[in-house]
Nucleic acid binder design. Structure first.
Lengths: 168, 168
DNA sequence: TTTACTGTACCGGCTGGACGGTTTAGTGGT
DNA sequence: ACCACTAAACCGTCCAGCCGGTACAGTAAA
């Protein structure tokens, strides 16, 4: 699917060179196609960014749903660590791409509200769950800016401690 | 000081209208001065953004240093809640402004590495301190996107629980 | 105490270039 | 014949940075 390749190219461009490098010509070149080809799939730059945002949210929701724990927070925790450890941290990049138009950020705001509210009051210890979710959020942020901050053993300990918080 | 007013105007523009609204003309107009006047204080757009980033980091470091606790993490926690509760959450806005050039983000990356490393191994429970700092980071993020997510009592409980984590 | 000069703080019009988007003409697989 | 593009020219808009001014405060010799 060429569409996916174009979204990939746009994300790579964003994380390598920053949001001002996201031009239609650059995305097309990186994806190995022409500007016309890009505009065939995404009729405007806005549509391209919207596509990135939607894919990001969908993929993460799927990853959360694919975990097999008994609470949303535990699934969210596992999904976050899976994503962060895999190294494909496009969240930050996509967000910077969308930061030009508040309108494009709306789905992301909505998703974030959901991620931090969903099933919170049904958990054994809502405050602990809240802290764990916030720490996951922080991890996304920190790792995006400084990928080398934590090594595998740190990740493992961190995940264990966060899981402990949810079962005390 | 006109300089500060220009930085304020730039930040306001970023958080109200997104990063693409950050043009020299718009900043000047919002600050009530001319484009020439703006370029007198900041010789380029890059310099303006650099100014915002630097002020952000300095102010937060000062806020941390002004707290009177016995560990860095506790000071960091108190500073975060003070900033977040005051409603002046410019961090996200400034970052989106700088996201055009990776070069402009460098000081922020450096600061973030510092905030998440400083005195960590000297704390009674480094893993707990790490979690608290990550949760603070997450709080910045979440509150920037969804300011109405938490009310005062939630903040109070959250801060108490995070403080508890540091003294068990 | 007038004059001449210097530096600071600012104004606002202009321009060159980049970028988003359109169009047109054409290609190759199915 | 249609889909999924390619290639390239082109247009209008927007914006950063430049530049030639202006106003004013100090200062210091004559």
């Amino acid at each position: 699917m060429r569409r996916e390749g174009l979204l990939d190219a746009a994300e790579e461009l964003l994380s390598d060179q920053g949001s001002s490098a996201l031009t239609l010509a650059a995305v097309a070149e990186r994806a190995g196609c022409s500007k016309g080809g890009l505009l065939y799939h995404f009729s405007s730059k806005e549509a391209l960014i919207k596509g990135m945002v939607e894919r990001l949210i969908e993929e993460f929701d799927e990853l959360v749903a694919a975990q097999g724990h008994d609470t949303y927070t535990k699934n969210y925790l596992a999904a976050t660590f899976a994503a962060v450890r895999s190294g494909r941290i496009r969240r930050w990049a996509v967000v910077t791409g969308a930061s030009g138009n508040p309108y494009l950020l709306a789905p992301l705001r909505e998703a974030m509200a959901r991620w931090h509210r969903e099933g919170l009051d049904g958990e054994p210890d809502p405050a602990a769950a809240q802290i764990v979710r916030l720490a996951c959020e922080g991890l996304w942020d920190v790792v995006s800016h400084d990928p080398g901050l934590y090594d595998d053993s740190r990740y493992a300990e961190l995940e264990r401690r966060l899981l402990d918080l949810l079962s005390e």
